[in-house]
Every structure is written in C-alpha cells, then in structure tokens.
Amino acid sequence: MFLVWFEKFFINTPWPLIVLGILILAWIGSRSIPVVIGTFLSFMLIGYFGMWEDTMSTLAIILVATFLCISIGIPMGIAMARSNKIQALIVPILDVMQTIPSFVYLIPVVMLLGIGKVPGLIAVCIYAIPPIVRLTNLGIRLVDKDVLEAADSFGANYWQKLFGVQMPLALPTIFAGVNQTIMMALAMVVIASMIGVKGLGLPVLRAISNQYLALGLMNGLAIVVLAIIFDRVTQKFGLRMQKYRNDGKD
C-alpha cells in the first residue's frame, strides 16, 4: 500500500537527502531563512537523539493522512457550499466527528480492520478531516456576492465560477483548514499508536505506561517540533498566496 511504500521510502533514503528535501520544501513554502535554519537544527537534534526512524514513520502517516483529508475534504466542502441541504446534512456529522472521544470509534475500526497502519490512518483521518471541510465551505460562502454577480453577468458557468473566482478567493481560508488538519493529524499520532501505528507516538505510549519521563518528553518534543515546522511553513505559504491583498487598501 501507498502508506507502506511512503514509510519505507522515508526510512531507507539516506538522511542527508531527506533533510535536504525537507529544507527545500520549507524554503519553497515559507521563503524565510529563519524557518529553514530552524528546520535544519530540529532535524539534526532528532537524529542526534536517535528518533530518526520514528520521526520518518510519523512524517509518512501525517503526509498520507493530510493528502487523504484534502482530497476528500475539499470536494465535500465544495458540495456543502453549493447546497444548503447538503450543508445541513454534513454539519451534524462533522460535529459528531469532532466531539466524540476518539477511543469510541477506534473500537469498531479495530474490530473491522484489526490492528495496524490502515485502521490507524482511518482514525487519524476521522479526527483531522472536519476543519478542512468546514473551512472550505466557509471560505466559498464568504466570497463577495457582488463579485459572483459580476461573474454571472458575464455568463460564467458553475465550474468557471468555482475554479476561476470562488476557489481562488477562498484559498486563504481553505489553507487555514489544511493547516488545522495537519495539526490535528499530529495530535492523533499518540492515540493511533495504540492500535499499532509506528512512529513517535509509540515511545510516548511506552513512556506513559512505564513512567519514563525523559523518553516521553523527548518524543513528545519531537512531535511538537514537527508541528511547529508544518505550521510555520504552511502559514507562510498561505499568506504568500494572498499577496494581492497586501498592498491593497481592502
């Protein structure tokens, strides 16, 4: 499966290449030297403390989960923005997904699919998908009615309006959703490790049950570091995408 391939790819590739790749991505995303230097130092520390493999596993599941959430969540958000009925249908489902304790849906997932990466991935996605759906919907609905009317008056059809006007104008909001989704996926890593997902969550879990303070702290901090890097890079990227707003008066 995709996830397995991804994880193997991350673990087996020599670490300097991975670090280089991540630094390049960080630069493309943020265009900020401090962020890139911070990223470099963090990964060096992670490697120094021997958490490299776990970090790579976590990275793999986060990336796959985020990719899944985006590819399901954005179309869902678009559908919600198009029709009030669909919105009325999906909102309660999202409420349930966000508030129900994760353990409750871990039980049926494990019962049906057993223990391993796939159920772990599903659990992470259930938890992480609501923000991207909600914010896509919100972003599209908040697009200025006057501008949409203008597009209408020139004879734009639904898809031309969606991809030419609504999505580009909703992008900053949608991006905030992507950011939130990544953060929530990271938060789920520890819980997912209970059902057999490898990665930084596993040592944390072990530390909790054995009261190894140092082990828990170190791996916990590694998660935090990953979170901060993801957050800074995606936020800076989101900001840059709305550059037309910066020098405007709006």
């Binding site: 006057d146 501008v147 203008a150 580009p168 405007g248």
Partner: peptide, 11 residues
C-alpha cells in the same frame, strides 16, 4: 454590466 461597487476580481 458595470456595477456600483465595481465588483472587480481582487485576485
């Protein structure tokens, strides 16, 4: 059509 509030595409 030309609009009162211009309704230009900001992006």
């Amino acid at each position: 059509m030309v609009f009162q509030k211009f309704a230009l595409f900001p992006h």
